[in-house]
Amino acid sequence: MEDISVEIQRQKGGPSPLPHLKQVWVNFCKALLVEATWYHNGHIPTLEDYLHNGWTSSSGPLLSLHVIFGLTNENLHLCKTCQEIIYHTSLIIRLCNDQGTSTAELERGDVASSIICYMQEENVSEDVAREHIESIILNSWKKINYHFNSLSTSHRKIIKHVINEARMAYVMYHSGDGFGVQDGETQDQVLINLVEPII
């Protein structure tokens, strides 16, 4: 983190981003610890509690802060201006991950996903829970679009990179766990979307 901070400061100037980058890592680790505690205790939280922690454990805030600090020197102002976009982007990352990995995690006995939390809380089937999670994702996209359209053009140029984190979550998890199980389909999607030129 110190090396990254020095490089950002060298390229962008201004005060050191190190305290902010360290704090976002601390928050990420604490969120993972909460999930580990739930798992160790066999606790399945409410969906609200899960999402309150899960948007941070998704790594969305961590990725977003690195993107913002790496692209602009008005980083703190932009982070505060775009808190809602960062939150909803992170929520989409978490929920797309859950949709893609929930079945395998349930079979392995891993920590509960949003789907499992909602199934237990509302006593509904997995299909109903998945539909509910999808509605939360769609609502988050609406909120991202609303807040994005209220930004200045210069801020939109930076924040589109944050929003792309949520788009990438769709690519990685639309057919299962494309991050943890890197099969041919995931590899093809990454190549098509990120590497191969558009002709």
Rank of each mutant, 00 (worst) to 15 (best):
residue 1 M to N: 11
residue 2 E to T: 01
residue 5 S to D: 10
residue 6 V to E: 15
residue 7 E to G: 06
residue 10 R to N: 11
residue 10 R to D: 10
residue 22 K to E: 14
residue 23 Q to H: 07
residue 27 N to R: 14
residue 30 K to H: 05
residue 31 A to D: 00
residue 35 E to P: 07
residue 36 A to L: 10
residue 42 G to H: 01
residue 44 I to D: 04
residue 47 L to Q: 09
residue 48 E to N: 10
residue 53 N to D: 05
residue 55 W to T: 02
residue 57 S to H: 12
residue 58 S to I: 01
residue 61 P to A: 04
residue 63 L to G: 09
residue 65 L to P: 00
residue 67 V to E: 04
residue 71 L to N: 05
residue 74 E to L: 07
residue 74 E to C: 08
residue 75 N to F: 14
residue 75 N to H: 13
residue 77 H to L: 14
residue 80 K to C: 11
residue 83 Q to L: 07
residue 88 H to R: 10
residue 88 H to N: 15
residue 89 T to F: 03
residue 90 S to L: 04
residue 93 I to N: 12
residue 95 L to D: 08
residue 98 D to Y: 01
residue 99 Q to C: 12
residue 101 T to Q: 10
residue 102 S to R: 05
residue 102 S to H: 10
residue 103 T to C: 12
residue 106 L to T: 14
residue 107 E to I: 09
residue 108 R to I: 02
residue 108 R to A: 03
residue 108 R to M: 07
residue 109 G to F: 04
residue 110 D to L: 04
residue 111 V to R: 08
residue 111 V to N: 09
residue 112 A to D: 08
residue 113 S to Q: 04
residue 114 S to W: 09
residue 114 S to C: 11
residue 115 I to V: 10
residue 115 I to H: 15
residue 120 Q to T: 06
residue 121 E to N: 02
residue 123 N to L: 09
residue 126 E to V: 03
residue 129 A to W: 11
residue 129 A to H: 08
residue 131 E to D: 14
residue 137 I to F: 02
residue 138 L to T: 09
residue 138 L to E: 13
residue 140 S to V: 04
residue 145 N to S: 09
residue 149 N to L: 08
residue 150 S to N: 13
residue 150 S to E: 15
residue 155 H to I: 02
residue 157 K to D: 12
residue 158 I to F: 11
residue 158 I to Q: 08
residue 158 I to S: 08
residue 159 I to D: 09
residue 159 I to T: 04
residue 161 H to V: 04
residue 163 I to W: 01
residue 167 R to G: 06
residue 168 M to A: 10
residue 170 Y to M: 12
residue 171 V to P: 08
residue 172 M to T: 00
residue 172 M to P: 07
residue 174 H to K: 12
residue 174 H to G: 00
residue 176 G to R: 07
residue 177 D to R: 02
residue 179 F to P: 13
residue 180 G to Y: 03
residue 182 Q to R: 15
residue 184 G to C: 08
residue 185 E to Y: 00
residue 189 Q to D: 13
residue 189 Q to T: 00
residue 193 N to V: 01
residue 197 P to W: 06
